[in-house]
Amino acid sequence: MSGAFAKLGALVLAAVLLVGMQRYTPGYAEITGPIPLTGKIGETLTGRTFSVRADKVLLAERLRFKAYGREVERDTGGVFALVIAALEAQPASVNVGSAIWRSAQGARFVASPRFQGAPRLLGTDRLEPGLPQRGLVIFEIPRESVAGATLLVAASRWPRLDTQAEIALPATLDTPAPLIDLSELAYE
């Protein structure tokens, strides 16, 4: 009788173990995913191929800039978040093509493609060692995604076994400016 119970127990135990392993074993995408490098705003983070420092976050309802000789103004259903940052290649020339605003709720906002041709956009030009680029990343986000976000910077949108700088952005930010002219922005 106790033998039967033991057999049943072993079976249940094995089933529980298998289900647990199936549920909680990290998947391939997770194992070969980004290698996080965490830091705060104002801190220089040095990854495998580049170093990054985010200095300031600004919010705006509208943005004005000059692209290809034309004055452009952009508005949004949410709010524009501008991150002023410095990037440098280390130790070899490299393209750092991905900046993502990860909201506190976990949504990932890729840098807005609505600003092509705007001055000093980061991610446009290749980075060179010894020549840090100071510039701007522009995100378009709903207002509820502003607080407590993280800036993710990497060579590509889904880095595989490569650095992803994860910079904690300020928990609270000023109310959005009605309009920011990108040509009048203070980068230093």
Binding site: Q90, P91, A92, S93, R126, E128, P129, G130
Partner: peptide
Amino acid sequence: LVLEAPDGRRWSPQF
């Protein structure tokens, strides 16, 4: 084809 500094930093040619 790159330029290499003594400290190992490397510059790729401009596209």
